[in-house]
Write a protein that binds this DNA or RNA. Sequence first.
DNA 1: TGTTATTCGGATAACTGAGTCTTATTATCC
DNA 2: GGATAATAAGACTCAGTTATCCGAATAACA
Lengths: 185, 185
Amino acid sequence: MFSQASEYALRALTELARCDRQEWILTGDLAELLGVPVHYLAKVLQTLARKGVLESQRGRQGGFRLAESPENITVYDVVRELDDVRQLESCIMGESECSDDTACPLHNLWRDVRDEFVESLQNTSLRELAEFQEKRPGSSRLTIVKPKLPVVKASKVPNGRNSPRQNNRTFGSHYLLNTRSNFVP
Amino acid sequence: MFSQASEYALRALTELARCDRQEWILTGDLAELLGVPVHYLAKVLQTLARKGVLESQRGRQGGFRLAESPENITVYDVVRELDDVRQLESCIMGESECSDDTACPLHNLWRDVRDEFVESLQNTSLRELAEFQEKRPGSSRLTIVKPKLPVVKASKVPNGRNSPRQNNRTFGSHYLLNTRSNFVP
DNA sequence: TGTTATTCGGATAACTGAGTCTTATTATCC
DNA sequence: GGATAATAAGACTCAGTTATCCGAATAACA
């Protein structure tokens, strides 16, 4: 459904929401905790920082943290920056002319499902994800100790040359993780 | 949401459901009516024929037709053969261990939306799509005249070198349109 | 001031979906 | 039987997603 980028982002930001808002969290620690590819996660987090969802701090003692309080960031806010949510609005049969007026045969069905979905994403904040995760049996978390930042790792990290898990796709991404193109037409 | 393949398939099969079940319909006529790339539509229809959703007839006076009566073919039946519907069942946050027991923070939300969606797809038949299309204002259709099969074309067909409309994605396709691999593990 | 630790940015590669084109196969009609 | 018209099958192109890696910029610390 979502792209890998969005999936990684949601999982990472759920963990960030469980941490002290002032602390800078390392990409590496997040990646290890979640068991996801470090470099790719880094790109995702960089994108979210560029978009204003995260704050980043370079150099020693740097890292990432939420730009706003977790209850003010919704799941939709995150996914919107990484996937092309406009495709949720477009015709499910791919017709160019399909609206409430000129509906395709599946228009109403899809509108109902999609509206419920989008509304749910907009009504769910990172705080709720974090609270749910908190109660989850066996859930590890990032432990902040003073000068160094050790990690209680969750599962064995499968290392060595991942070939890309290709194309388990999503409702679509557009230009995604590149530096340029901050505007959406 | 759906792949291009599924979108084209649904639109094409909706038209097939409006035709005489005995008639063989040409890929070219369907493509012209729908304004979709002929060769790609051909691949999609061939796949559906291989999977048993359609029947095909080679040679002169050949073409495609529904393998069963339209009320016995659901939207889900079509999409299932072209997209990897198992991905709808998998975790929306990409966690490997996520079930009703070990739920991720978005598990219940996604399960509700997805179940309603899948159920709708399974409860909607091609007959319903065809009937809806029938009532639609300005909807063209394939006109079967005796020996030749002229077509009342719907809209201007944008011809000339379509570069692939890239990656407006879907919940995922797997091996999709290749000849082999009829089984799904 | 120099070292170290971190994000930032670009280059590159594998894999797949979308689409085109060409050839082979097959059925019908003259 | 031969010409014709259609599906069947494969090779190929193009672009986007998912990664990996490296060097540059930058901030903290000794």
